[in-house]
Design a binder for these strands. Structure first.
Lengths: 140, 140
DNA sequence: TGCTTAATACAACTAAGTTGCATTAACATA
DNA sequence: TATGTTAATGCAACTTAGTTGTATTAAGCA
């Protein structure tokens, strides 16, 4: 996975301005092991001494999505989360008690399944969302 | 899948009151081929000549979830959808252009995968969410 | 040092969903 | 078929996530 510094470098090289908020957000994403929501990002910036308007947060998320630096996921909470886009394809284990989120990689390959569905339903699949819900080691 | 009438019958037998809103909602769910959101349900009731407060809609959804008559799903829209709970396990094809929703059954079995993950991560999986996104036959 | 304009803030808004409390009506029983 | 109990409903006020238009600020180049 790209480091925060390398992302910042390539954004600069592409001609985008580098502000405190943008730099810090890239740093937060590249250091986080879990997907983060917009309200969470705002709090984390605040903790770093950076006050950002919520509009700015949403616009910056939009920018980072456009640049394919982050990707969007939903974990059934009624809000969106984001994580670095260049990670190995993976899924999440969401604890229904403490709401912790853990990564997991699939051994099974959904690609043939997707091929079968595409032929059967004449539907062009571009991506999928697969998350597992249950109870983490500490909460069982 | 249970019919609306049989659901209404067993709810009555369990001692729950049968109101117009509840009866109509059960009917709507048992006739719908796609998962429905709270705002959508309210509009569909209105179309049947039943005006319901949105609080009532949410409380009725909560009731039907508790009774395990419906189940909750999320299709990445920032709102929840609900469908009959006693259907065969299935997933959804969500068109990113016209936002139509189609059912699809998986041939691959995720159970062994879940067993592997449970052992590996010491995480007790109770359910999963798998949805496919892309473009339907008409939108490609 | 100043210019251009991307980035930001602010205010006002929408949409989904929640909470507390007052009111209404389903239905058991008398 | 009247009546009492309380589940179901309505209403108002609220929260949280997210959006839009416009004015202001500041990054980075000439």
């Amino acid at each position: 996975m790209q480091t925060g510094q390398s992302v910042i470098g390539s954004l600069k090289k592409s001609g985008f301005r580098m502000t405190n908020i943008r730099r810090e957000l890239v740093g937060i994403f590249s250091n986080s092991k879990v997907p983060l929501s917009a309200p969470q990002l705002r709090i984390m910036l605040e903790e770093q001494g950076i006050t950002a308007n919520k509009t700015t947060i949403y616009r910056e998320i939009y920018f980072l999505l456009e640049q394919k630096i982050i990707m969007e996921i939903e974990l059934g909470e009624g809000k969106k989360r984001y994580e670095m886009a260049d990670r190995d394809h993976h899924h999440h284990l969401v604890c229904m008690k403490c709401f912790s989120i853990e990564d997991v990689e699939l051994e099974a390959d959904l690609h043939e399944e997707e091929g079968r569905i595409e032929r059967l339903k004449k539907f062009k699949i571009t991506n999928h969302a697969l998350e597992f819900f249950g109870f983490c080691a500490g909460c069982q």
